[in-house]
Amino acid sequence: MAKITDLKEAISESVIDGQTIALEGFTHLIPFAAGHEIIRQGKLDLTLIRMTPDIIYDQMIGMGCAKKLIFGWAGNPGVGSLHRFRDALENGWPKPLEIEEHSHAAMANAFDAGASGLPLAIFQGYKGVDLEKLNDKIKYITCPFSEQKLVAIPSIRPDVTIIHAQKSDQKGNVLIEGITGVQKEAVLAATCSIVTVEEIVEDLEATANSIIIPSWALNFVAEVPHGAYPSYAYGYYGRDNKFYTNWDKISRDREKFKSWVDINILKK
């Protein structure tokens, strides 16, 4: 059964320096509050996994939490670059960042394989592209039935996965609605999992086919209203596209970035 606790305790009891962690949420339900708590607790040397690093990993990379990033698309959606990510990669600031780069299809398959207890993911992809030559985790396997050549990559099995969802009940069963990305897969692939929720309710009011992660498949549930802001939570609040646009200016400059983090994360 999941332990229902507060965010501070959930992070301090599960995230350890040097671990491999995934904060998932595909544009929607990005666990920003949890990422900010990791920054406040000063976690270091993390290998961060996310299909789209988004602003949350830009902030964590800029604060020196990461030694490595495993990702598929590292941009500020519809706006431009992730400047803290680029500064780490291009100039080693605040520290050098190792990268392992994949396509989204590859990452989605690798999370799915991790959740399925498999050591590898098999799919059709990477044909003719340069990533395949640069990422030594991309290998090939021959189908024993059709003799087709298929891509094989290691499954993703994070030490800790953190996601945000709409609600849980008092037992810690979690309901997710809207764009669900790879959240369920990322939770089931992980050794330890934390879910932050908008609210804890008496009754989930779920329909028969709702996406629910049972309490007994989770480790921690914490109630964190607005925990996905400035991304969004379907049914609760919209995506703050204005903030995503403004992040470009805030993150371009190291000093401006640090003072923003100081006011909006560290002193909160």
Partner: peptide, 29 residues
Amino acid sequence: LPLSIGDPELSESALTNESVPEMFRFWLQ
């Protein structure tokens, strides 16, 4: 027009929302 690939406008006006693994495995592949 959505700013991001997963804006609320896309999700709320869709016939259905699929998981990303299903998107790539079933529908695309």
